[in-house]
Amino acid sequence: MEIFDAPNADASCGRRNVTTVAPQALTLLNNPQIRGWARDFATRVRRDVGPDHSRQVKHAYQIALSRLPGDTELEEAIVFLRHSELENLCHLLFTLNEFIYVD
């Protein structure tokens, strides 16, 4: 957690630091645990809605972002899934600013 600004226990922490640096991005991209979660997420989506790409994208969006994709997003995601695994779409949802930052 040190990479994501976990406070040092030696001193009081009035407010957490908020940093956005490459080591955090590397963790989200390459950490085996996060990749594992992306695989589990994809398994759940497939189990819930089956093989249809459009339904998969809508369901994954709903779970990860609590909303349905817009028309453009849906179209782009379907194009993406023609060349890529659902695992990769699920993984990329974890990296989105919208996923990380609460509005």
């Binding site: 908020v18 956005t20 080591p23 991005a25 991209l29 600013n97 930052y101």
Partner: peptide
């Protein structure tokens, strides 16, 4: 920060 984070993924 949002742009900074986009940048951080490209650098990563």
């Amino acid at each position: 920060d949002l742009l900074g984070r986009i940048h951080s993924f490209e650098l990563a």
